[in-house]
């Protein structure tokens, strides 16, 4: 497994390069300039370097990428769907960036932002390993008891 931008959480220069990678990817997919949707900065201007590395909004859909420090020897890419402020469909991708994921990521970003693919179909595009994916689609029944 060849991971990319491995030490992005330790080195702000690498983090910024890593962030630029996502910006380029989104721009290549949408054909238009990509801007952060979420600020990822405190009010004093200080940037937050915590792995919520890129977000964008395109034609009413939001994409948030959360990159984890690489520590798996299998492809890690999980997705979930949220409704942002009751109006925008939002796809949250949690991943460890590797060559394998990079190839898949472009397809998923294009499917979500450009082709307006349904979340269920996005889910089916994710790596099949039971260790790298989980079902988490629509509002589920609340189970909040202490039963074992």
């Amino acid at each position: 497994m060849k991971h990319l931008y491995k030490n992005f959480l330790q080195d702000q220069r690498v983090y910024n390069l890593n962030e630029a990678f996502y910006k380029r990817l989104v721009e290549a997919v949408t054909g238009s300039e990509a801007f952060h949707f979420f600020r990822s900065r405190y009010a004093n201007g200080q940037k937050i370097y915590d792995g919520h590395i890129f977000s964008t909004r395109y034609e009413g859909r939001i994409l948030q990428v959360i990159q984890r420090e690489p520590d798996s020897d299998y492809p890690v890419l999980r997705a979930r769907h949220k409704k942002w402020d009751g109006q925008y469909d939002m796809l949250v991708l949690t991943l460890e960036l590797s060559e394998e994921i990079k190839l898949l990521l472009k397809k998923i970003v294009k499917a979500w932002l450009v082709e307006k693919t349904a979340f269920e179909e996005i889910s089916s595009m994710l790596p099949g390993s039971p260790m790298s994916n989980y079902e988490n689609s629509n509002p589920a029944p609340v189970v909040n008891d202490d039963g074992e």
């Binding site: 949707f37 979420f38 600020r39 990822s40 900065r41 405190y42 009010a43 004093n44 200080q46 915590d50 919520h52 977000s55 948030q64 959360i66 984890r68 942002w84 402020d85 949250v92 949690t94 039971p130 260790m131 994916n133 989980y134």
Partner: peptide, 18 residues
């Protein structure tokens, strides 16, 4: 750090539970 302005999103996930 002076607060934060919208829109902002942070997700804290338990990576040990899939």
């Amino acid at each position: 750090s002076g607060g934060i302005y919208s829109p902002e999103f942070r997700s804290f996930e338990n990576e040990d539970i899939k």
